[in-house]
Amino acid sequence: MTTTSGTAPSAPAAPTGWEVRDSALMRVFEPRTFPELLATVERVERIAEAANHHPDIEIRWRPPVRTPADDPAVKLPAVLSLTFRCNTHTLGSVTEADAALAAAIETALAPAAQPAV
């Protein structure tokens, strides 16, 4: 007896550095400075517009966590993060377009794409 599977095709593979979470490809990036964060968002904006496919982007800033051993006179840097989520909202899942967008975003996060500081 031959049976056929009624399962949907598998989702595309996540690019290196990305994970599948809640039906989306997800990546957290921690830039060193706020200007670097904004420049990264601008690079991703150009990629997304060219592809006509847009990620969800969450920008987070939080103060540094101090320990009792920290010198209060030393200014610690804030922790900045960008979270990118790629999924096809109308389908509620990850598609080839999302995998391609995530891969393109990953190139924008590469050190060579970063402006000299």
Score class of each variant (00 low, 15 high):
K75L: 10
T88D: 15
I105S: 04
A51Y: 02
A102P: 04
P9M: 09
T33R: 08
A8F: 00
R43E: 02
N87Q: 12
P77R: 05
H53T: 08
L37I: 04
D56F: 05
F84N: 09
V65Y: 03
E49R: 15
A99L: 01
W61V: 15
V79M: 06
D22S: 15
T2A: 12
A102D: 02
V41K: 06
E30H: 10
A50W: 00
D56R: 09
T83V: 08
Q114H: 07
V117E: 12
A116M: 13
S81L: 04
A103M: 08
D56A: 08
A51P: 07
G6K: 11
A112Q: 11
L37H: 03
N52F: 07
G92N: 02
P63E: 12
P64S: 07
H53G: 09
I57H: 03
T16K: 08
I57T: 08
P72K: 09
M1S: 08
T16D: 14
V28W: 12
K75F: 02
V41I: 15
V94C: 06
I105P: 02
L80M: 09
P35M: 00
H89M: 10
R32S: 14
L82W: 03
F29R: 03
P111V: 04
N52A: 13
R27K: 14
E58I: 15
A113K: 08
L37E: 11
T88H: 12
T95Y: 03
D56E: 13
A69Q: 14
D70L: 00
A116F: 01
T88C: 04
A13C: 04
M1E: 11
A14C: 03
R32F: 04
V20R: 12
A39P: 01
T83E: 10
H53C: 11
T16I: 07
A51I: 03
P55C: 10
L101W: 00
A97W: 07
T83C: 12
I47M: 07
V94R: 02
